[in-house]
Write a protein that binds this DNA or RNA. Sequence first.
DNA 1: TAGTTCATGTAATGAGTTACATGATTAT
DNA 2: ATAATCATGTAACTCATTACATGAACTA
Lengths: 195, 195
Amino acid sequence: MPKESKSRYALLGMINTMPMSGYDIKDMCDRSISYFWHENYGNIYTVLRKMETEGLVTMERHQQDGRPEKKVYTITTAGQEALKAWLHRSPEPRRLREELLLQVFHGSMIGPEALIQKIKQQRKYCQEAIMNLSETKEYLETEIDGKDSLVPYWMQTLSFGKKFYKAEMAWCDEAIQEFTKLAESVKDEKSGNHS
Amino acid sequence: MPKESKSRYALLGMINTMPMSGYDIKDMCDRSISYFWHENYGNIYTVLRKMETEGLVTMERHQQDGRPEKKVYTITTAGQEALKAWLHRSPEPRRLREELLLQVFHGSMIGPEALIQKIKQQRKYCQEAIMNLSETKEYLETEIDGKDSLVPYWMQTLSFGKKFYKAEMAWCDEAIQEFTKLAESVKDEKSGNHS
DNA sequence: TAGTTCATGTAATGAGTTACATGATTAT
DNA sequence: ATAATCATGTAACTCATTACATGAACTA
């Protein structure tokens, strides 16, 4: 069986919280799940139209004052069932492709100093990510858990992000330290200062 | 500019440590970097032949006793330069697609109990991963840092893996706890027992 | 007036995965 | 005998990304 695309469920899930357009979906993805999932316009619009023909969503044109027309998609019963069925399935194991780690693995070719620069960069990125997550968390906490009970679930994904980035930052610190030591020992060897 | 494939560098890096065949590369990837990088035969053999025409590697047929013939690839000077150039470039930001997290985000549709099962499964997976990493670490520690100084770099990627999985396991524990609470509060509401 | 945001779409591309095919040998 | 390991390859496919195109309105 060929591996099935998961984009549809990302979109269905978003539409399920409330009817929205492709543009809205992209916006919501970027604001809420961007640290563990991504979607781009090209795919969104394509998948949306496909799901319409499959009867998972329906489309309505919404006229707006001054702004371009919107195509607002609404989930159907069939769509909700498809979403639920996926939610009950086991997630596929992740296939990471961590370019930085690959560079570290083959780092002996460029030496520790060059790696340290990369890792410092990554550390900065982690810090920013953690700040963003904190802001989102604060926002969610002010939200009265009203119409949708999605808040506690969203919160739990934020917690994952935070733990993940904190761990990565800790790794960055450790790696910088280790590679600094390594760089010094290389220098020592060159000056004939063996242990 | 279209995004460039990173597979070639994964392969070049492996061949750089010692000449080997596509089959060997797959084996080495699976044993050493599988928790943050993956390659499959289809791609390996294709990319290998492409790199040969580009002059990044050379190929030699090796006859083996009893076993099928091997095509052993060796990195060229051009290949080493390409590898080095990539190592000096900044890694592209990762694009995660964490299906489990997506399911958690939309979890309100199936409720906390169903999620807890998934997360328990994930926790088990993390535990196994940590054990595998520990074994690899022990193996590396017995290796005398001889011909290749790749050991400390490899070690550092192992440390990343361990920190990552430990963080994920901690998240699993937290999430299980939180969703258990949530499940109970839902039950309370049903039985008319409000706080 | 030039740039940004809003809004949708499609064609081309590429990269990677899967499935399939072959065939020898070795272990059970 | 038959399953597993060793070893390579390719065709089909799908998924996603990129690039490009359009166009209105708002903002500096």
